[in-house]
Write a protein that binds this DNA or RNA. Sequence first.
DNA 1: AGCACGATTAACT
DNA 2: GTTAATCGTGCTC
Length: 199
Amino acid sequence: MLPRSFYAQPTLMVARQLLGMRLARLVETPNGVLSIHGIITETEAYTGKDDLACHARAGRTPRTQVMFGPPGHAYVYFTYGMHWCLNFVTEEDGVAGAALIRAIEPLDSQEWIAARRPGRPPAEWCNGPAKLCQALAIDGALNAHDLCSAQSRLYVESAPPIPDSRVTIGPRVGLNNTPEPWKSIPWRFRVSPPDPSNG
DNA sequence: AGCACGATTAACT
DNA sequence: GTTAATCGTGCTC
């Protein structure tokens, strides 16, 4: 499991370095605890009070206080009246920041995930921030969850890093009403889709 | 107390 | 390409 010092880095570094690492989620089943894993393939950086796209722009509120707290905790928020999104709190204690997890590629537990994403093809199980929360049973109950404790049910495991040659960087998405320059600043990181001409 | 809107998704034309 | 779904949050009055 990644140590808290990883999350204590600047938000942009955390968001970039999360690509390729393994998200782990432990859930209860009738047969015991199931451990679900997926490779993180897309993230975005939300850098704190001065980032007008970041919820922390409002300062410390009941909703945002987790982002101002110690690094290595989950920030899970509710939006559009029905969706949950998962972030990891970054920066030192007292400084707001978070990396949004936008997509993963499931490595196991396909049968369990399929039951939570009925009628959707496997490629669309976890290719969106709210989709992966639906797939992995992540909701407000996991807000402020410690990602670095021995009994954590949500954490990240180290894995070989993704080289820059395989990373696409661009503007964050869904910021329709956010002013420039934050709307266009390239703080989205994703593993590049396969190149058909390259095998 | 009231209001506009959202770090989205799925279904529809 | 467009739009409904659906409610917590933060801002204004």
